[in-house]
Each structure stands twice: as structure tokens, then as C-alpha cells.
Amino acid sequence: MTDHPADPRPRVTASNHSVAIAGTRCGSCGYCCLDDSVLCMACGSTLSPACFSPEGTIWAGTVQRIEVNGRIPPMILAYIDLDEGPRLLAHVTGKVTAPQVGARARLVGTTKEGDPLAEVIC
């Protein structure tokens, strides 16, 4: 038995200096998500695989300064609304300060622990 048989985090791919994130898009209502769901969580229709581009806008950010689950603080975290749809939680590189609401950000890959990793771009 394993504690965590499947990694539930969004699937970020990085190759040839290109970063993308895998998910699904609903053929009926257009809902986008990063889960590998069977049915659309918004309308129940069937989904198609989708690949989203890495840029988006910071919905909100923080610096987590406590250790949880063995993660060493500080951790810079942000919800990012990708331009093509989904909102995801990402770790953010750079100076230890909360990413500003409304700032532009870009996914750059994953942390060494496998979390989506982004940078603020302006």
C-alpha cells in the first residue's frame, strides 16, 4: 500500500524551452480544467484533452512561512488564472514577497518536489 498512489497535481510539461500544461476542455460549454476528469464538472458533457499555454494573471498570492508536510518555508504561492482558462495553484520563483494581485505570470516548469512553478513577468 502506498500513501499517495497517484500524483493529483496539474501536469506541467517543459521541452525545447516551451512550457505547457495539460488538462481538458468541454466540447459543449467550453469549461476548462486541469483535472483528468471523465465528464465536464460544469455541465456533465464529454471532455476533450487540451493543452494550455503558460501565461496568466495572479488572482492572489502569499508567502507561506510555516512548515507543513515537510515543506521548508518560506514558500511563495499564488493562484494564477491562465489566459486560456483554468485557475491553478503554483509555486513562484523570485524574491520572498507575496506576488501582487493582477500581475502577469508565466509557468516555467515544476519545483524539485513536482509542483507547478511560475515566475512573475511584469
Binding site: P8, T62, A78, A90
Partner: peptide, 21 residues
């Protein structure tokens, strides 16, 4: 840790902190 955000280390204080931000 079976939850996407939990696996990424998001604590409840940090979730609420982002609402405050």
C-alpha cells in the same frame, strides 16, 4: 496529500491569506 493543492503544500492559513491579499 491526495488533493492537488494539498500535495503542493498549501496550508489553510495560506488559503485564507490569499483571500486577505
Amino acid at each position: 496529500a491526495t488533493d492537488a493543492e494539498g500535495r503542493s503544500g498549501l496550508s489553510l492559513p495560506a488559503l485564507y491569506a490569499m483571500s486577505a491579499a
